[in-house]
Design a protein around this nucleic acid. Structure first.
Lengths: 221, 221
DNA sequence: GTATCCATTATTGTATACAATAAAAAAGGA
DNA sequence: TCCTTTTTTATTGTATACAATAATGGATAC
């Protein structure tokens, strides 16, 4: 059975897992036959994905996977830097051993996926770690916005990411859990801020501009 | 000519201006004949409005204007309290006499609309004051989120607002402009925080629960 | 051989037709 | 008279048909 929600999740996964790279075309009839529904259902999903900034729909040209601009990439990270640390005080009031072990399991799976080279899994888990923390704050409005930002970040890393975007000298996500267990909201805020700023600064923003490629310079010798 | 964007804006205006009250039905064929387009175009707009939380679509039951829950109302305001003051430092770097006079004009129109009893105008201008400030921060991602929150706030005030929600003992929006002119980011942040908290606390959240009305208690004597 | 123009093709935009569902009204029985 | 059941009506969900647009490839003229 192919419900709207299901189709949406499938395509979104493919995008954030870099199966569908930035710029990839998403023809309606191809997708409709792939999912076994009519174009109507596909259009609805594509419409939604475009409002969520995962695809771009150009009139009479169809849907492409969004290729985030430099400014968009930075703004998404800046938004996270502004919001996620601020959620710590609220989430720490809901913090308990049960949550702690739940998140520790996630970081374990995360490391494993990374070690086994399961890129798609690793990306999903990294994003999930962040937005599930956000949901713990109790504010669903902010949490779902953060969730969207996390998914967008995955897409951004597909366009501008380096190997450094994954690792971080501040340690992995497990370290944040230690801090949360210790109960220091302030430390956790600092860690989160630092972590996100590290990701932001790891983006390489000059090279991958493929609009206006200077073919002259590229192929002349 | 009735483009998608135009229809969206029209319906959104009607909602935030309280012309279409929370709970109002939005039948597709009625709207389609009103705007002179087929149901297809209307459905697209309704879909979008539902993703933006202005309408709720129930399967096989159609679209209604969203009746925000208490928790949703509080979460929207909390989100604004968390974000909007944080945008002040960025926006103050773009502050200049030109912007100042532009916003002063807005507050003037705002007061006038309020004085003349033009409720719809006043609501729009109040929201606009906030989200245009947010856009001055330079972060389009956050600004458009704040914009949505401001519109949602207008809908929330339709459901839970009091007369106190409009006025505020901290003075009107013009006072913030004075602070911005003085250049004190910290003061501006405090003002914004206070202002939003005042709106939040002015909501009356007990009464208008019309789900689960206790008719027993209501009509027994 | 190259450039321009035209025709073909592929794809999306929009409207409509039909099916499915839920609400409302009517009929029947107690 | 009131409750239950059935029928009707209104409305939405989905697929498809047709129109409009843009991209591609080929033909013709120079």
């Amino acid at each position: 059975m192919a419900t709207d929600e299901h189709i949406h999740q499938q395509i979104l996964n493919a995008i954030v897992e870099h199966q569908l790279p930035p710029g990839a075309r998403l023809p309606e009839d191809r997708l409709s036959e792939a999912f076994g529904v009519s174009r109507t259902g596909i259009r609805k999903v594509l419409q939604r994905l475009s409002l969520e900034h995962f695809v771009v729909i150009e009139k009479n040209k169809g849907a492409h996977v969004n290729r985030p601009s430099e400014s968009e990439a930075l703004e998404v990270l800046d938004s996270r830097i502004l919001i996620e640390p601020q959620l710590i005080p609220a989430l720490i009031t809901h913090w308990n051993p049960e949550q702690s072990s739940r998140f520790r399991l996630m970081t374990k799976e995360e490391k494993q996926a990374e070690a086994n080279g399961q890129l798609a899994e690793a990306i999903q888990l990294t994003a999930r770690f962040h937005y599930e923390l956000a949901h713990l704050s109790g504010n669903k409005v902010l949490a779902s916005f953060v969730e969207q930002l996390c998914y967008r970040s995955s897409l951004i890393l597909a366009a501008y990411g380096t190997r450094g975007s994954v690792g971080c000298e501040c340690g992995d996500h497990a370290q944040l859990l230690d801090i949360l267990d210790s109960g220091s909201a302030e430390d956790a805020q600092h860690w989160m801020s630092h972590h996100l700023k590290h990701i932001r600064s790891s983006l390489i923003l000059e090279s991958k501009e493929d609009t206006n490629i200077d073919f002259q310079r590229l192929f002349s010798r």
